[in-house]
C-alpha cells in the first residue's frame, strides 16, 4: 500500500517535471476533439442519419470514444521493450518487487491521471459547444459498461505486453508497436462507430477481439445492444485475455533465459 502511494507521488512529480510535455499532449487531444466535432458537423449538414446514428448519437459516440480511447490506450507498458533492449531491465530484475507489479501500479496511476484530465476536457468541450448527451441511465447497463471497460483495459494490457516482450528478440519494437497501434485503434472503433461500415466488413471486424476495446463499451452505454449480447462478447474477450496472458507468460520465461542482460 505504501508502495502504491510512493509510486503515485513519483508519477505526479514526473508529470510536474515534464509538465510542458503533458500540457502539449492534452492540447493535442483537445485539437482531436475539435477536429471530430467539425468533421461530423460537416457530415450531418448533408444527411440526417449515418447508419444507425443521428447527429446527437454520433456526437455522443465520438465524445465517449475520446474518453475511452484515452483510458484504454494510454499505456506506458511499451517502455518495457526499451528496458529490455537497453538493459535497464537489469535494475528491475534485481528489485524484490516484480517488474509487472511495479509497472501495473504505474499504469493504473497513469490511467487515473489521464482519465481525470480527459473527463475535464470533455466536460469543458460539452459546455463550450453545447452538446446534448444521452445516456442510458440504467443500473445494469452501467454495471455491464464498467465490466466491459475493465475487460478492455486488461485485454489491451496483455496485448501491449506481448508486443513489448518482442524486445527480447528484436531491437526495433517501434515498428510492430506502431503498426499494431494503428491497426487496433481503427479496429476497435475509436475513430468511428464500426457498424456504419458495410455489413460484411463490420461482421469480420466484430469477430476480432478488438471491438471490445472501445466500440462495445459505448454501445452498452448508449443502450444499442442487449445485455445478453454484451455479456457474451465480454466473455469471449476474456478468453482472449487468457490467451494473451499465457502468451506473455511464455514469452517472458523464454525471453529471460536467452536474455543477455546487455548494457554495462
Amino acid at each position: 500500500m505504501k508502495l502504491i502511494i510512493t509510486i503515485t507521488k513519483i508519477t505526479f512529480s514526473e508529470y510536474l517535471a515534464y509538465r510542458m510535455n503533458f500540457i502539449l499532449w492534452r492540447f493535442r487531444n483537445f485539437l482531436y476533439l475539435f477536429f471530430y466535432y467539425n468533421f461530423w458537423t460537416a457530415v450531418y449538414t448533408y444527411q440526417k442519419q449515418v447508419g444507425n446514428y443521428n447527429k446527437q448519437e454520433i456526437f455522443f459516440y465520438f465524445i465517449m470514444s475520446f474518453v475511452i480511447t484515452d483510458i484504454v490506450f494510454s499505456s506506458k507498458l511499451f517502455k518495457l521493450a526499451s528496458y529490455i533492449n537497453s538493459g535497464v531491465l537489469n535494475q528491475y530484475l534485481l528489485y524484490p518487487v516484480s517488474v509487472f507489479k511495479l509497472m501495473t501500479v504505474e499504469e493504473v496511476v497513469d490511467k487515473t491521471f489521464n482519465t481525470f484530465f480527459s473527463l475535464i476536457e470533455i466536460l469543458l468541450f460539452i459546455y463550450l459547444f453545447k452538446i446534448e448527451v444521452f445516456l442510458k441511465i440504467d443500473f445494469y447497463y452501467i454495471a455491464v459498461f464498467i465490466l466491459s471497460l475493465f475487460c478492455a483495459l486488461v485485454l489491451y494490457y496483455f496485448i501491449s505486453l506481448c508486443i513489448s516482450l518482442l524486445g527480447f528478440w528484436t531491437n526495433s519494437v517501434w515498428a510492430p508497436r506502431f503498426l499494431t497501434f494503428i491497426l487496433i485503434n481503427s479496429l476497435s472503433g475509436s475513430f468511428f462507430p464500426l457498424d456504419i461500415l458495410p455489413k460484411s466488413v463490420f461482421e469480420l471486424i466484430n469477430a476480432l477481439p478488438f471491438s471490445v476495446l472501445v466500440y462495445l463499451p459505448i454501445q452498452i452505454l448508449q443502450g444499442k445492444v442487449s445485455l445478453d449480447f454484451a455479456l457474451v462478447k465480454i466473455s469471449i474477450a476474456f478468453v482472449w485475455v487468457i490467451l494473451f496472458f499465457f502468451l506473455s507468460l511464455f514469452m517472458w520465461k523464454k525471453g529471460l533465459k536467452s536474455y543477455t542482460a546487455l548494457g554495462v
Binding site: L166, W169, T170, A175
Partner: peptide, 14 residues
C-alpha cells in the same frame, strides 16, 4: 542472434 529490424523479420526470427 542477429537481431532483426522490421516487424516481419522479427516475427520470423522468433
Amino acid at each position: 542472434y542477429e537481431k532483426n529490424t522490421g516487424f516481419l523479420a522479427s516475427l520470423t526470427s522468433f
